[in-house]
Amino acid sequence: MTVETTAEPSRRDFLYIATATVGAVGAAAAAWPLINQMNPDASVLALSSAEVDLKPIAVGQIVTVKWRGKPVFIFHRTKRDIDEARAVKLADLIDPQADEARVKKGKDEWLVLVGVCTHLGCIPLGHQGQYDGWFCPCHGSLYDTSGRVRRGPAPLNLEVPPYEFSSDTSVKIG
């Protein structure tokens, strides 16, 4: 409804240009809240981190927690799991990545992964498959003890979410 038209464009009158510009600025400013309201709201952002207590997780156990609506695997690895992961030659990997790059320094036994198969999004099953990691029942992808894909059709390793150790016995994911 705010029709800014110059009847004679050859006039290039400052007043008309000023009015049109101010009008355009106003329209943009009015449009922003309408667009921004679809962004995650404060209550969603508040739940964007999950704190997990690691104390109850036994050695060798995989625990699944919910984070941002998705499953996250927390794997308390045994020394054998870690050695197995470190023994693999990077050239043999579909998505080469060192195990050290997928864990926090000094906390090698803790593996935190987003539990969503990188093929089409199913949730892989833990402690299964010939690589001792995860097996995805949908199309047969296999992951190792570092969550790296060893047999497809998945193209990428299981994602490591952003996380920090808020203390020696708890992590904050996201």
Binding site: P33, L34, N36, Q37, M38, N39, D41, A42, S43, V44
Partner: peptide, 27 residues
Amino acid sequence: MHFTPTVDGAFNSVEHIMRDVNYGWLL
């Protein structure tokens, strides 16, 4: 997009709009 049309949720969803939704109070 943010309103819940249930007797238990309606009032609270309006408050959710007012408090949490970006510029919800303005809308």
